[in-house]
């Protein structure tokens, strides 16, 4: 039989929704061997004081992140499209409710 290594299990990233209707926010990570254990460990670790109404756990290896050294050029396309912001537009004085 194949030897099983003694490890802490895989790394899972934890996201908590603090109130219904709010976005999920990253809070940290846990180690676990499967989904069920990841959810239980995350609950015990990150919601001991009712911090959570919703929770996601994601295998850390499944997360795709942008390389920070590329972030300037990566996010650049937005820079020259100022017309996407409402403040770009000239409106007559005295306009209301817009």
């Amino acid at each position: 039989m194949e030897e099983i290594q003694d490890t802490q299990g895989a790394l899972w990233e934890v996201f908590i929704q603090s109130k219904k209707g709010l976005p999920f926010k990253h809070v940290g990570s846990v180690h676990a061997f499967d989904k069920e254990m990841a959810v239980q460990n995350a609950r015990d670790l990150y919601t001991r004081r009712g911090e959570g109404k919703g929770m996601w756990v994601v295998p850390a290896s499944s997360i795709v992140a942008v390389d920070p050294s590329d972030d300037q050029s990566f996010f650049e396309p937005a820079d020259d499209k100022v017309y996407r912001h409402p403040t770009f537009y000239e409106l007559p004085d005295g306009i209301k409710n817009m």
Binding site: I4, Q5, D6, T7, Q8, G9, F33, D34, M37
Partner: peptide, 15 residues
Amino acid sequence: GAWVRKAAAAYAKKH
């Protein structure tokens, strides 16, 4: 706790 971690790893692998 080593046997618990090994058992959990074996269980996860089987599934």
